[in-house]
Amino acid sequence: MIAWLRQHRRALAGAIARLAKASGLASAIVIGVALSLPAGGYALLENLRGLAGRLTLEPRLSVFLRPEAKRAETEALGAALRADARIAAARFVPREEALRELKATEGIAEVVAALERNPLPDAFVVSAKDQGAAALDALAADLRRLPAVVHVQADADWARRLAALAGIARLALAFLAALLGFALIAVTFNTIRLQILTRREEIEVSRLIGATDAFIRRPFYYLGLLQGLAGGGVALAIVATGLALLNGEVRVLAESYGSAFRLAFLGPVDAVAVVLLSGLLGWLGAFLSVSRHLR
């Protein structure tokens, strides 16, 4: 057991020494640069998702009444809305209040003040219990059929479109990650092949004097693993630097909207996953190379 540990420690130390050499570091950097693309894209998408999530926390439907709707019709509609089991809350927004809100909005106040009469209709702002896209669509369609209703606007529409776009981006990112993961394997495969070539004599002699296959292969597995782990670390460093640079610009933009929004780094679980996955792929590249090039 002690001997076994010693053998592994020795192989690991040898692999670290080899990684520390210029060629090993260069490979780790190449891997890091390649991986920083999907990792950075993923970080941006997660930020986008966080942003969209905050904006659509409460998907609401605005139900506008016909301008000529009678007070009784309005009250009947209110009662119908409150009676609907799918609706969590329905708030009546009289046209006067809507106009006041509009007047309070910067940049529009003057335009509104110039109006001769209030162009806005009465409305109900409805929040649904089930906030799923399909449920909201169904509810909006039903509300549209009610008497006195002229228009139903789903405020979550744009968020849903954003989510769809993000879905496409996520798919593209997954494809990119798979492609670059494959490149990582290929880079490691080649590094290990060169290592095996430069150490050919040592391998031959070691075999002749009693080294097991496991002993001969072990340092190469470690080298592949370490190179992958180091590459993953480099990728994280690149993403962190890139986000910090972007945040300089984002801050200016966000503050102009009165927001404190910043691009966040990958969460700890995601960051560790990037490094571990990279290490795993490095090990796989080494395994394939050793299987191919060591008899």
Binding site: E201, E202, E204, V205, R207, L208, I209, G210, A211, T212, D213, F215
Partner: peptide, 21 residues
């Protein structure tokens, strides 16, 4: 094949071409 390394460890081998590193 897997038993050969253990055989060789118990032998002292001096090769014709020495095989030094």
């Amino acid at each position: 094949r897997t038993a050969i390394p253990y055989l060789r460890r118990n032998l002292g081998l001096v090769f014709q071409d020495q095989k030094l590193l």
